[in-house]
């Protein structure tokens, strides 16, 4: 398997909360410099997967590599300092802190020696991306609307200039116009060289910007597609448009290897 270097790699990872494993044995790679989207029904274990990547959940088994480096033993903070950015699905900002403080915290613990100027520049870049935040820097993050909070969370993850970005439903709670804006922002970040692994439910919009798509059902990877082909696949169509019985039906584990070309 001598493909493009992987930004992220999971090898035979099992993880869960209580007695049972939510992820049974997940092996996947997200190619560097691309946007990989994970899709799957509610409760499939998508957030669990991404939390395991971020380090909030210790895997019971398996290895996790970021840019070829084994980070399995690292704490979430150490992974963040190693260049892994993460936007959780819920509780993704410090509600009792101001927006300005949230942004600052996003930067200062990763670039401990950064000067004021470097921080100001980083912040200016984020505020360019999300201009709605600019006039409210002194307001409490808890007072933001759900969508604005989503933007702030994204900004906090971006401000430190991560090399790999994990996004758990970045467009959740956004109005249709903002869904496009948010995903465009993701694409823009990606063009600047950041590899992105994201979970999305707005599949049509997500596929517009993604390169690769992975389907996760019941804690198992059901296959991976070239983004352009994903929505056309009959299995995907039944899963997202049809009934739930078919979800349980066995599927060929490896439907397709990495798409040869991407848009």
């Amino acid at each position: 398997m001598s493909e493009a270097p992987a930004a992220l790699e999971l090898v035979d990872v099992a993880a869960g909360y209580g007695a049972a494993d939510i992820l049974a044995s997940v092996t996947l790679r997200a190619a560097a410099g691309r946007i990989t989207t994970i899709a799957g029904p509610n409760g499939a274990g998508k957030s669990t997967l991404i939390k395991t990547l971020a380090g909030l959940l210790r895997p019971r088994r398996g290895r996790i590599l970021v840019g070829g480096r084994d980070v399995t033993a690292l704490s979430p903070a150490e992974r963040a300092r190693a260049g892994l950015g993460y936007v959780p699905q819920e509780r993704n900002v410090f509600r009792n802190l101001t927006i300005g403080e949230n942004l600052r915290i996003g930067h200062e613990f990763i670039h401990r020696r950064a000067s004021r100027r470097e921080f100001a520049l980083a912040r200016a870049r984020v505020l360019d991306l999300f201009p709605d935040l600019a006039p409210r820097l002194n307001g409490l993050a808890g007072a933001l609307s759900g969508g604005q909070r989503q933007m702030l969370a994204m900004g906090c993850a971006l401000i430190s200039g991560p090399s790999v970005l994990l996004l758990d439903e970045p467009s959740a709670g956004l109005s249709p116009r903002y869904v496009a804006t948010m995903l465009d922002a993701v694409a823009q970040v990606n063009r600047s060289g950041v590899s992105v692994l994201m979970i999305e439910q707005n599949l049509v919009e997500a596929m517009r910007v993604s390169h690769d798509a992975i389907l996760l059902v019941g804690g198992e990877i059901r296959g991976r597609w070239n983004a352009a082909a994903f929505l056309a696949d009959p299995e995907v169509r039944t899963l997202f448009l049809g009934g739930t019985q078919r979800v349980a039906a066995p599927a060929q584990p490896e439907r397709q290897r990495d798409g040869a070309s991407a848009a």
Binding site: A54, G55, L56, S75, P76, A77, A80, R81, Y86, P88, R91, N92, V93, F94, R95, N96, L97, E101, R104, I105, G106, E108, F109, I110, C156, S160
Partner: peptide, 24 residues
């Protein structure tokens, strides 16, 4: 101070604080 922000961040949401690189 940075320490104070770290303390308030942990008090607010310890997991998120770690994700932001704060050494708990």
């Amino acid at each position: 101070t940075r320490l104070g922000r770290a303390m308030r961040a942990i008090a607010d949401d310890a997991d998120l604080a770690e994700v932001r690189g704060i050494a708990r």
